[in-house]
Write a protein that binds this DNA or RNA. Sequence first.
RNA 1: ACAGUAGGCUCGAUA
Length: 279
Amino acid sequence: IRTLGTVLTNLCKTNRTRNAAVLVNIMREKGCRLDSFSYNLLLEGFCKEHQIDAAYEVVDQMAKDGCLPDAITCSIIVNHLCKNGQLNAASRLLKSMGKMCVPNVAAYTAIVECLCKASKVMDAEEALSEMMRKGCTPDVIIYTTLMYGHCKAGNLDRAFELFSEMEQKGCVADMVVYNVLLSGLFKAGKLVRACRFMQQMVERKFAPNVVSCNALMDYLCKAGNVKHAYTLLTWMTKGGCFPDVITYNTLMNGHCKAGEKEVAFSLMDEMILKGFCPT
RNA sequence: ACAGUAGGCUCGAUA
């Protein structure tokens, strides 16, 4: 029974949810009842594979088995609705779920992210306040998401304000928040501030990683500085940040736009040699 | 009490 959970996890995470579902049916016939963990695994798996009908069947089956959807079940559904452009449906579900279970941060985060990507940052702010009014404590992830929205809208001041607010509330900053702010600075063309910020990151024991380097590289390319971007490739490796597919994409794109097709092609070869698949 | 489930960052492609 305990291994069943592990098997299901593996199947669902490798796009073989269908197989997991078959397994579950067999187990059920043998009189084995699933818990919400397992149902959530199936639900998430089907959602990821865009097998919406199958996903609904899971929810039905769950009800038939007398297993109540929990906060995680709801957040899985809300998240997938958001990611598939069904924001309204997602908000409605979130509202109705408030009656069944405690509103939860993950579901709100999905909503906030969706609003931010649609450039509706004010609505995103409102979603966060609503969540707090309902007694749910914001965490570092939802703050990061909202900060991302403000950076995207070019409102760095608000992003940094939220950063302090977050720390005052005792949320511990992680690498992702730092990267959101950093790339916000780059996107706004604030190179000097960005460099100072990277210093602070180092002081706080969050030395820039590949994602940070990629953001810098993109900035350099877009600022027409492909030469420097290219040298960053070796520097980052020396600093212990190993280039990934995105690094190469960024560089190749930069060189193409700068009319340096040969360099772009040699980068392509280099990346294939390193075992990366071009996207 | 100690297996397994949900949400956030960098390029590009899609709309």
